[in-house]
Design a binder for these strands. Structure first.
Length: 481
RNA sequence: CGGGGCGUAGCGCAGUCUGGUAGCGCACCUGCUUUGGGAGCAGGGGGUCGUUGGUUCGAAUCCAGCCGCCCCGACCA
């Protein structure tokens, strides 16, 4: 019995814990095709809340949504040298359709820079056509060697923003703005503290001049890149001829950006917040912020009616306060069973309401994070819940921040680095040379996560090879997903 | 692509070494009793044992091939 209902503890085997909770919390199920998964209603509801929150932020920063097709002529990938090198190995390609072999094979998009570049070249003639500030929500496919639910699936959902600008300054400002939007979302909606920074040359997006990232720490102290924003310079506009006449009637190439955040964010939420009991959902994007479990005896119809009436009344009050409430009125399972199930699914607050409470005019509030129960007057319940949800977000964020900061280190010598990088994130002076990064990875499994926008300043030569440091700030190294 | 593991009921597994009526737990269905932290009893339904071929009177079990999936690495959001 314990075997089938129990969850492997994080300490015992974090990876097994992760795999189990994905299925047990009913977020996703394996599909018949290797590396792809079905996102089930509970997981998809979380994604919908992520989408809604982010989409509002995109609109607020002047972007419009549109949609490009999934199939891209394979030759498009050969137009940008780094891009083809970066993506060719993982392309899935359609060679037959309509019962015939196609003249030119069609790639299933791994990302849409190429087809968007092709179309933007038609849409941009004058500096007056700029900027183009567009985003699309779509699926993409990358045939990765090894897959993991939400973290790396062959097909995944994301949004990709693609903008074109008349000047480099404007495009860089866009790139910075969007990494800030991602950090804002991660911290203020997903309750995940992130480090904003720039990727080193070796970790950059294929075809980008600058890649900004948000990095989050998971509860096994590994890092997860959770959103990226790229400045392409004129790499893609030259490859796809996105050119225009500027104010002086001179021919110029547009400066482009792209930025994306994917269903991997769900993996981040699972691993940044979850514990041995299961998920802990950040309230602002939780599918259910509150679950109400009515308690009654089946043979006592009067009590049941009274309890259900009170539950419906309370649920109505909460909905009036824009709280997302689930009333679990399923029959045939004990309250204890429901308590455990909703804890595993990470619902922030659970309200228990039975005859005893009703008699006292009270309701029990159980907090998934504090793991305590308190009793409040029914009349005050909805206002208590509203403020408890706010507090829950702050507590969840703070818990993750403390966890990360306790596992972040600044060191000056390579021996200390090797010791500390096994425990978390380490800031070091770094030369930025790809060969040195590779050597560090070989010796420690750690990779450069980013050069943080804010962080300890460089104060000496590279910790590993003693060559001159390449960046003004120390580079964060960590084991990563 | 390297290493490891596994394919038997919806899920998790035993049975395979040593060939001989297809098993267990959970889930599911029915009934009764239960219901404030994963309920109990009784009855019941569900299987071409991944696949192809071979050995044998007889194969989940032995032999050969094939396929698939999972996990750990290298690669990546």
């Amino acid at each position: 019995m314990a075997k089938t209902k129990g969850l492997t503890s994080q300490q015992e085997d974090f990876s097994a814990w992760y795999n189990e909770i994905v299925y047990k919390a009913d977020l996703a199920d394996l599909s018949p095709v290797r590396g792809s998964m079905v996102i089930k209603p509970y997981g998809y509801a979380l994604w919908e809340h992520i989408q809604r929150s982010l989409d509002d932020m995109f609109k607020a920063t002047g972007h419009d949504n549109l949609y490009f097709p999934m199939l891209i002529p394979i030759s498009f990938f050969e137009r940008e040298a780094e891009h083809v090198e970066g993506f060719s190995p993982e392309l899935a390609v359609v060679t037959h359709a309509g019962g015939k072999e196609l003249e030119e094979p069609l790639a299933i998009r791994p990302t849409s820079e190429t087809i968007i570049g092709e179309m933007y070249s038609k849409w941009v003639q004058s500096y007056r056509d700029l900027p183009l500030l567009y985003n699309q929500w779509c699926n993409v496919m990358r045939w990765e060697m090894r897959t993991r639910p939400f973290l790396r699936t062959t097909e995944f959902l994301w949004q990709e923003g693609h903008t074109a600008h008349a000047t480099a300054e404007e495009a860089m400002a866009e790139t910075t703005q969007m990494v800030n939007v991602y950090a804002d979302f991660a911290e203020n909606f997903a309750a995940i503290p992130v480090i904003k920074g720039e990727k080193t040359e070796g970790e950059r997006f294929a075809g980008a001049l600058v890649t900004y990232t948000i990095e989050a720490m998971m509860r096994d102290s590994k890092a997860l890149q959770s959103g990226t924003s790229h400045y392409m310079g004129t790499n893609f506009s030259k490859a796809f001829d996105i050119s225009f006449n500027d104010v002086n009637n001179e021919q110029a190439y547009a400066f482009t950006t792209s930025w994306g955040l994917s269903t991997r964010m769900i993996g981040a939420i699972i691993m940044a917040h979850g514990d041995d009991k299961g998920l802990i959902m950040p309230p602002k994007i939780a599918p259910h912020q509150v679950v109400i479990v009515p308690i009654y005896r089946k043979d006592d119809q009067l009590a049941k009616d009274q309890v259900m009436a009170a539950v419906d009344e309370l649920a109505g009050q909460l909905r009036d306060q824009a709280v997302r409430v689930k009333v679990d009125s399923r029959g045939g399972m004990s309250p204890g069973w429901k308590f455990n199930e909703w804890e595993q699914k990470g619902v922030p607050l659970r309200l228990e309401l039975g005859p005893k409470d009703l008699e006292a005019g009270e309701v029990v509030i159980a907090n998934r994070l504090k793991e305590n129960k308190e009793t409040v007057k029914l009349a005050e319940a909805s206002s208590v819940v509203v403020s408890a949800l706010k507090q829950f977000h702050d507590d969840l964020y703070e818990r993750a921040r403390v966890f990360r900061d306790e596992r972040s280190f600044v060191v000056d010598d390579y021996e200390s680095f090797k010791e500390k990088v096994a425990q978390g994130w380490v800031h070091i002076n770094h030369c930025g040379k790809p060969a040195c990064e590779e050597a560090i990875q070989e010796e420690t499994k750690a990779t450069p996560r980013c050069i943080p926008f804010v962080g300890p300043e460089t104060d000496g030569p590279c910790v590993r090879c003693a060559e001159a440091s390449a960046y003004p700030r120390k580079v964060i190294f960590a084991k990563a997903y």
